[in-house]
Amino acid sequence: MATVRDVVKALDDITGGRVLCRPEDVTLGRHPFMIMKSSGIPGKEVIETPGLVYGDPNWPVRKVAVAMTLSEQDIELAQATGVDAIIAHHPIADAASSGGVTLKHYLDLYGIAVLELHEAFHGLHPGIPALHGHEVYYVNTHFGGLEGNVLYTGMALPGIKTLGDIIVRLSGYMGYEQDDALLENERIVYGSSLLQESGQATRARIVLGERSTPVKHILHIFPHTGFTAEHLREAVRLFPDADTVIASISRLRPGHPLIQTAKELGLNMMFGNSHALEIFENGLPLACALDKLLSDVEVAVFRERVVSMPLQAAGCTAIRTYGQEMALSHLVRKVPV
């Protein structure tokens, strides 16, 4: 039977040796993919530790789940569905990733191991550019000298002639029709047309240009990595044939300097897939690789769907009544007349 140790080895094989295989390696500065993530907010920084975060290497593993961001939802679903180990893409942190309690107490309760694989997985496959309709010929993961600031430069794939072609390609790969049907049925069940879902609400869209606008030379950026307007100017200086900017994983607020700069430089711009769909972009390739390497282990994919409900349609009638009673009896000190 496979063990947690086998899962760690599979991740190390997939990444070409980027995984921490020994507990004593968990020291900043001793591993290139052990990275501190901090905004300077007191007490909220986290260190990425690719590999086993918690659990016994000798624990048996019959089923693993690949997730994007570990939460109590994942832990509870894992316990209920027989998952022995969860591999999260994003960094795992005490309390933040475990319902406000410590990871140790929660995971020991169910005997679930957790692993993470974030920056150590990035750059291992060209899937995200391919989904967005271009083949990369230049990649820089620290553009402008900023670690993690990724720039892809690519040529549109055969059959991708316009911005509209990219929208159609993403629609097919990301299953827009499936998600439309799912959300429409949720709206019927909850009796509200105002329900919104994270994947649908953040779909690809054109910001500068039209569906018929020609596209050939693409700059693909990820704004949340720190990509700035000056970075865009530098990218255009390096690649003067560029005609289109694709911003994906994250996007930009209206009037953002990057949008204004793209317009000034005469570039088309579109928003591609958002973070809400990275479970397919990065999670699915990882899950498929694990399925090949761990032949006797069942692999599941945990997809996060965040649904926005108007207060009047949140849950069923009984639970909404409960919410009102708790609020009025215990939480609201003065009720306006």
Rank of each mutant, 00 (worst) to 15 (best):
I128D: 09
V53P: 02
H231S: 03
Y110P: 03
L238P: 02
T213W: 05
G272N: 13
L277T: 10
V114P: 08
G159N: 09
V337Y: 02
E147F: 09
G164H: 11
Q324M: 05
S295F: 09
I41N: 07
I112Q: 00
V299T: 13
T27W: 02
Y54I: 11
M269S: 02
T261P: 10
R305K: 15
E48F: 02
P240F: 12
E281I: 15
D291N: 08
Q260C: 04
D108T: 02
P254C: 12
K9A: 11
S250G: 15
D241S: 12
G283Y: 08
K37L: 15
F121D: 11
P42L: 14
A247Q: 09
G255T: 03
Q324V: 06
I249Q: 01
C288L: 14
Y138A: 15
A262Q: 08
F239K: 08
A113Y: 01
Q196N: 13
D243C: 07
V61I: 11
S295T: 10
P310R: 07
L238S: 07
P285F: 12
G315Q: 10
A130D: 05
L331T: 03
R205F: 08
R5H: 02
D165N: 10
P126L: 02
D243Y: 03
T81L: 09
A300G: 13
E281R: 08
G133T: 01
E177Y: 12
V26N: 10
T317N: 06
S38I: 14
L286Q: 04
F222Y: 14
D13M: 06
V83N: 03
Y176W: 15
N149F: 14
S248L: 07
K161S: 14
D84I: 01
I128H: 07
L103D: 03
